[in-house]
Amino acid sequence: MFIEIEPQSAVPIYLQLANQIMEGVANGQLPPGSPLPSGRAFAADLGMNMHTVNKAYHYLEEKKMIEIIPKKGVFIHSNALRKATEEEKQRIEQELRPILAEAICLQLEKEEMEKMIERTIRNIQEGAK
């Protein structure tokens, strides 16, 4: 699976990395247990500091999307596709809040937003950009 990073984008690079890996998990390109490159190899491929990759990996590790097994490597978490816990549901709701606030300010209709969500879900599942 190809990861594509835009170095000049406003989105921090570690987040671009993490988001694309998460999309790979969501659409099945990265099934649970599949290996990811080591931090050093990934950084070399990007031509960037290892710190950036480690930040992305720790971010995903906290979300229980990947597991870092010492001496063995980095893998998609065996339980990456799971039923969300109450806590996780709450967190996602919290994270949606500022986006929805902005949408309300910009006077987006509820139906419009629903369509947006449907379209985005379809794009993620089909692996489309």
């Binding site: 594509e4 990073i5 835009e6 170095p7 890996i21």
Partner: peptide
């Protein structure tokens, strides 16, 4: 133009 860095996760395997 939009610059892009591409990494293949499968490359090392």
């Amino acid at each position: 133009k939009k610059e892009k860095i591409v990494v293949d996760l499968q490359f090392r395997q």
